[in-house]
């Protein structure tokens, strides 16, 4: 049988193409990325209005508020992660690729983090000032967000893959993902609170790093498996 000559390329170039595609799509219709950021800002603004504009009260709450707002904002942006691909048939092309699916999925999740979690991290100092977070806790907040938001994207993407065929699956996605977010929230706010009291918080940071490493290793396998099973 006549075999066709193949130009060998590695999976990384497919990943790069996928990242480039998703970033281009985000730039062409930036609403998808901007809405969660506006939501992040709005939620954090509601707390001084709803509770008390006191400096003491707000600085106590700041870490929790910023983290919960970030978590919800990431959830908001997760719904369309695989659903848009499913809607236009691009998901079939992803599944038919000869490259390892977990690798391709990791590229997609990375792009999602870049357009959601990373942007939220960049916005966090603004919110921290708004909520009177003590200056000594700033670095702790930034480090926990940098380590924690990729975990939110990775864990949430499992839920997004499982609900890819569910119409209006946003609430279901939230219910699936929030339990996975609890450990991240506990250790991240714990680190910021420890930093506010001038206590060492490296233990929390190490735990967050462990979550991130586990997420990078295991979540793509779960996401790939879920996509294969769900997209029958």
């Amino acid at each position: 049988m006549a075999r066709f000559e193949k130009t060998s390329m590695n999976g990384l170039s497919a990943c790069a193409a996928l990242i480039r595609r998703d970033l281009t799509l985000t730039f062409r219709s930036p609403g998808q990325a901007i809405n969660p950021m506006a939501f992040f800002l709005m939620v954090a603004t509601l707390f001084p209005l709803g509770i008390a504009p006191d400096r003491e009260v707000l600085s106590e709450l700041a870490a929790g508020v910023i983290w919960i707002a970030a978590l919800l904002a990431v959830l908001l942006s997760l719904d369309s992660l695989f659903k848009s691909d499913q809607d236009d048939g691009a998901l079939d092309q992803l599944l038919m690729s000869p490259h390892p699916l977990p690798l391709l999925v990791l590229a997609k999740v990375f792009t999602h983090w870049l357009t959601s979690g990373f942007c939220l991290t960049l916005m966090a100092p603004l919110l921290a000032i708004m909520l009177h977070l003590p200056a000594e806790a700033f670095s702790a907040l930034m480090v926990t967000l940098l380590l924690g938001t990729p975990v939110l994207s990775l864990a949430g993407a499992i839920g997004a893959a499982l609900t890819v065929k569910v119409q209006r699956g946003g609430v279901l996605l939230t219910l699936l993902s929030l339990p996975l977010y609890i450990p991240v929230l506990i250790f991240a706010t714990g680190a910021v609170n420890a930093a506010m009291q001038n206590m060492p918080y490296s233990g929390h940071i190490l735990w967050l790093s462990v979550f991130l490493l586990l997420g990078i290793c295991l979540a793509p396998l779960a996401i790939a498996g879920a996509l294969r099973v769900i997209n029958e």
Binding site: K6, S8, A14, A16, A17, L18, R21, S97, P98, H99
Partner: peptide, 11 residues
């Protein structure tokens, strides 16, 4: 076409 050919491993 560019992303699809990359994904399908055809340069």
């Amino acid at each position: 076409l560019a992303w699809r050919s990359r994904l399908a491993n055809t340069a």
